[in-house]
Simulated scan of single mutants.
Amino acid sequence: MTSIILIISMIFLTGYSFVNIERYSKIHYVLNKHIIEKSIHYWNNFINDSARKYNIENKLIKSIIYAESSGNPYAKSNSNAIGLMQIKPSSAGVEIYRLNGKKGQPSIQELYNPKINIDMGTAYIRLLQKKLFGIRNKDVMKYAMIVSYVNGVSALLKIFSKNRQEAISIINTMTTKTFSEYVKKNIQQNRPLIT
């Protein structure tokens, strides 16, 4: 599933089009690209506000929403990732709370609120960007952030090297295509998208 998320995100970021995406969970979903984009468009004001606030490209935010929830603010995964940007309260939620000087973790009710979810998801992208500091190619950085958003920074870097600096150095020798191919081949995680 991780490969599917990466491919969909990369396709969306580069502007290529495709007809349908199929996702399976308790119910079989067939989602049309036009319907998903219309749903995401509904959240544009929140996306643009968060993009400005955290200096993150709004197209990157949209691609994560597209891949993670298909624009469904009520999406919830088997691993308890919630809302448009599929925030896990006990991991990304805790990190963003801590970053904002709060204790604990966001409530499920907060994460189902599209404005809060997009703000927290975008803050988390910004945090990942800082953790991946040193990747020079901007396109590789975008894809590294997407993979890290889904799997975690350590899972991404470990497929290159156990040493963070060495992993970044290896990534810096790659083109966007070789990075993408390497990640698809080596990242290991099966995670359902929507339940």
Rank of each mutant, 00 (worst) to 15 (best):
K177C: 03
I82A: 00
N190D: 11
I56Q: 05
V153L: 05
Y149H: 06
G93W: 06
K33I: 10
Y66Q: 01
F133I: 10
N44V: 02
P114H: 02
M141S: 04
I47M: 02
N117R: 01
Y24A: 12
F46K: 13
A92L: 01
I64L: 08
D119R: 00
T173Y: 04
Y54E: 00
I96A: 03
F179E: 02
S77L: 01
T195E: 11
Y66K: 03
V140F: 06
H28L: 07
G104H: 10
N78F: 13
F12E: 12
L84H: 01
S25Q: 07
L156S: 08
V147L: 11
A123K: 14
V147T: 13
I96K: 13
L128V: 09
N113M: 11
K162A: 11
N186A: 08
I96L: 13
R191M: 09
G104F: 08
A67D: 03
K38T: 09
L6C: 04
H41I: 08
H34T: 13
E37V: 14
G15E: 02
Q105V: 06
K59C: 04
K184M: 12
N45K: 14
N100V: 02
T176N: 06
T175W: 06
Y124L: 05
L193Q: 12
V140G: 02
D139W: 05
T178V: 09
G71M: 03
S148W: 04
G83F: 01
V140T: 08
G152Q: 04
Y74L: 13
F46Q: 02
I170T: 07
T178S: 15
S107R: 00
T173A: 06
I64M: 04
S161H: 01
K162C: 05
K62W: 03
R52W: 05
S69N: 03
